[in-house]
Design a protein around this nucleic acid. Structure first.
Lengths: 98, 98
DNA sequence: CATACAATATTGGATGTACAATACAATTTA
DNA sequence: TAAATTGTATTGTACATCCAATATTGTATG
């Protein structure tokens, strides 16, 4: 609700989830598994599901209620991801150089 | 203390501050300015100084109390930065591609 | 010395992310 | 059907980060 903390360094979990789901629809546990592989430490359900819930409420992702309940990105989510990705790259552009 | 939330997606502000200060000692306002340039939105003193305080308390940076009070990275901070950088790159390795 | 201004810093309240513990739902196995 | 297992989700508590507002300190300038 209209809180414009645009300067926020919070939100990297949501950003990463959005990024993963944008590549391929995934279930909650698949997402946790993939984050675990990348960071070396798998987040617990109490971390993953609240974040998923927020993203659904924002309309950035949606849950396909069949089978394992996969989450996939929406049009809104894709637009948001594009902006977030750009900001991310501008902010950390020189971290990856060597 | 000794809270081992190793899985943490929090701490990106501290990470970025550490990264900036590692390249060159900076004052609080210089740090805010540089982050503002990267993100397009300059963090307020209420964001920057508590983070700096924590980093000093951890021993990751130290304040040179002469002139504009520049902060510079310590040996401990450099070691911490090296680890954090590696985790960061592993976690977001595919964001920068295209 | 006094006033102004910039940089440094703290406070209070909100939000995102963290885990542990627990609960619930859908299969599978006995 | 009962018990076990796995995935999904909530709750409670803690902490990093966020801003606005305020306070403090240091350095000019009058």
């Amino acid at each position: 609700m209209e809180n414009e903390h645009a300067c926020d360094m919070r939100g990297f979990l949501s950003f990463l989830i959005l990024w993963l789901v944008h590549k391929k629809p995934m279930t909650g546990s698949e997402i946790a598994e993939e984050i675990g592989k990348r960071k070396g430490c798998k987040p617990t359900p109490g971390t993953i599901y609240p974040a998923l819930k927020q993203l659904v409420e924002k309309g950035a992702i949606k849950a396909d209620s069949k089978g394992g309940k996969k989450y996939s990105i929406t049009k809104t989510g894709n637009e948001e991801l594009e902006i977030a990705k750009e900001n991310f790259c501008k902010t950390f552009y020189d971290i990856f150089k060597n």
